[in-house]
């Protein structure tokens, strides 16, 4: 099935949610399908171990439903990324490891075996990601896929929500090595820009990271943390926040206190979901499709 065919199929089947198109170049209409086209799936903020019926009475079953939903995609993604808060925080180091191991076991049921992880503050801020690293490895890293350069940034292992000078220097060196026509995709947990610092929706030294990324002409950022879809631009850089898979949070500053939005029995799983990110042949356009936890 070509990209066009698959899009048509999704429209006909009514499976895709909101579609957002980002990009600076012209559309790839007429280019046809190519082996360079690809898509990945972003899941975020699964908070395995969370309990609270008011926010999610199916907290112990939502992650499994999300895995099943990804497995049922007509065309399987090239890879899957989890942008942090895999688990809900606990002060008990043993329980933290237990939750991380259970999470890992559940997501091992994904059909796609190329899965990338990064920590959120719930996974890593209380032990500088020691437990996370035991189970998942490095907290910041790069990889390439079909000509696109991916950079996973860690803005949570420092409990103050900072990247730190060492990681910023590493980022600078990496960005400098990339060819100007290479598309860079940054994956991280917290927003790199000051979305709403009053709710800690920011990265302490995020501006320095954005300044480094601004040196490159083609950059998009995919992150989590805020439990809702959100799109923002700093200069030419797009920032796309993903929904959560445990509970939704209110729009930034829309209510006096940041608190989980209550579960709606009339619309179970409302506000939860994951997304598919598609690259066309030229990578001039990135198309984002939002999916609910339960499809159909």
């Amino acid at each position: 099935m070509t990209m066009i065919d698959r899009r048509d199929f999704l429209k006909l089947a009514g499976l895709a949610g909101v579609t957002f198109v980002a990009g600076t170049g012209c559309a790839a209409t007429g280019m046809g399908s190519s082996s360079d086209e690809f898509h990945f799936v972003q899941l975020s903020d699964t908070h395995w171990g969370f309990t609270g019926d008011a926010a999610n009475p199916d907290a112990a079953g939502t992650l499994q439903k999300a895995v099943a939903a990804v497995n049922s995609l007509v065309e399987q993604p090239d890879f899957v990324v989890f942008t942090g808060d895999l688990t809900h925080n606990t002060d008990d180091p043993k329980e933290r490891r237990r939750r991380l191991a259970q999470f890992k076991e559940i997501v091992s049921q994904l059909k796609v075996k190329n899965v990338r992880f990064m920590p959120g503050e719930h996974d890593g801020s209380l032990d500088k990601s020691a437990a996370y690293q035991e189970l998942f490895g490095a907290t910041h890293y790069t990889f390439n896929h079909k000509g696109v350069h991916f950079i996973a940034l860690d803005n949570v292992s420092d409990p103050r929500g900072r990247l730190g000078e060492e990681q910023l220097q590493w980022l600078q060196a990496d960005v400098k090595q990339q060819k100007t026509d290479t598309q860079i995709i940054v994956l991280t947990h917290r927003p790199l820009f000051d979305l709403y610092p009053q709710w800690d929706w920011a990265t302490g030294d995020g501006k320095q990271a954005v300044d480094i990324l601004l040196q490159h002409p083609k950059v998009s950022v995919f992150y989590g943390h805020i439990h809702q879809e959100h799109h923002f631009k700093t200069g030419h850089i797009d920032h796309h926040a993903s929904k959560s898979l445990i509970f939704a949070l209110p729009a930034p500053g829309s209510v006096p206190k940041r608190a989980a939005i209550n579960w709606n029995p009339a619309m179970p799983y409302d506000g939860l979901g994951f997304r598919e990110v598609e690259f066309d042949k030229s990578y001039a356009n990135i198309e984002i499709k939002e999916y609910p936890v339960k499809r159909g």
Binding site: S125, L126, P159
Partner: peptide, 14 residues
């Protein structure tokens, strides 16, 4: 003006 703790300090940090 709201104050928040911005150093992740435990289960009820938020």
């Amino acid at each position: 003006f709201e104050v928040h703790c911005d150093n992740f300090c435990g289960v009820n940090h938020e």
